[in-house]
Write a protein that binds this DNA or RNA. Structure first.
Lengths: 188, 188
DNA sequence: TCGAACGATGTCAGTGACTGTCATCGAAGA
DNA sequence: TCTTCGATGACAGTCACTGACATCGTTCGA
């Protein structure tokens, strides 16, 4: 457990999001984040490997949820179906938190470094998904392609959900995009 | 035109690739790259915005070729067909330069920062592709999805081409993956 | 042919992200 | 109470990157 004021990590995350929102990512120094959280710069870097990562603390558990859901999907399902279920489960996690999620996303899209970090998180997710499918006996390149397709659909659905102010149902957007993807590739 | 020794930019690119290969990206300082190219650190940053970008000088022209090919594709073609043609044209550009391309790719996959940069280049390519399709009258979300699918196929085909030591034909790999993607999504 | 104009480079000082090292503090157990 | 240990602070250092100004070749007009 921690001593002094509890939850140093969480305070750093909140301070960072606030400052990135108020004056922008580039205009914020790590020392300022630490100060607002009542800590020092050195302590920031003990909790997060760099200035970007503080915005992506939740990525790990999101990926775990994704992988877990695919692992637990019924064996009979086609790869794309197993993955679709996972997409919808994960979507449900977002649906309730539009405010926080969209604030964070606004910070990310405004800065190239943060967009890069987001992309590698999605790539990591895709790789983990492909691994999980392989563990379910799905061959190559099917596993890899299915994972990439799923992540692409999720990415676009998420963008549209944010653009729409959270009005449209994320799960619904995902289903639409999957159907549309099917139509797109059918032409090849 | 330039004076002093010509082609400062090219010398910096070559020095960087050499040093990144010899001792790794992180263990190389910009000052060392500049010194090997017979220049100073400051001049490096006049040619490239950061230490990563020196490896991605060709990304712009690659994207231009991609966009141009899609723009010139016959009007009758379905979106995915127009994009497929472009994939194959671009693939041809790689086929002859396996040595250089694979050396560069080895450096990139060995470092997270460089993988991030590569991913944002691919994202930019996808966005440009989607834009081009929209200009051809393709609607949303078809344009976006087609572009994402094309880039995903290209990415996986490229990886497999590198893994296979350049033995397998890149164009052939692309065709296989497009067929497989069709099969994958058909299950949904 | 000379000199002004200009673009590419060098020099230097500075900021800020990130790291290694060591001291210190506060909690928990012997 | 003493000891141990994990979290934090303090501090010096490296390196990516930037702004400001000087300098050097080239080029082009007088």
């Amino acid at each position: 457990m921690s001593r002094w004021e509890p939850n140093a990590r969480g305070r750093l995350e909140q301070a960072a999001l606030e400052l990135y929102t108020e004056r922008g990512y580039e205009q914020t120094t790590v020392a300022e984040i630490a100060k607002r959280a009542g800590l020092t710069e050195r302590t920031f870097f003990r909790h997060f490997p760099d200035k970007r990562e503080v915005l992506f603390a939740g990525a790990g558990s999101l990926q775990d949820l994704f992988v877990h859901t695919v692992t637990e999907a019924p064996d009979v399902a086609a790869p794309i179906d197993a993955v679709t279920v996972a997409l919808e489960v994960v979507a449900a996690q977002f649906q309730d938190r539009f405010d926080h999620v969209s604030r964070r996303q606004a910070v990310i899209v405004a800065n190239a470094e943060l967009r890069e970090r987001e992309l590698i998180k999605l790539a990591s997710l895709s790789a983990a998904l492909a691994d999980t499918l392989r563990r379910r006996g799905v061959g190559e390149p099917t596993a890899r392609l299915t994972a990439e397709a799923a992540v692409a659909v999720f990415k676009i659905a998420f963008e549209r959900w944010i653009e729409g102010g959270g009005e449209r149902d994320l799960t619904h957007l995902i289903r639409e995009l999957l159907a549309e993807l099917k139509a797109v590739t059918a032409g090849a």
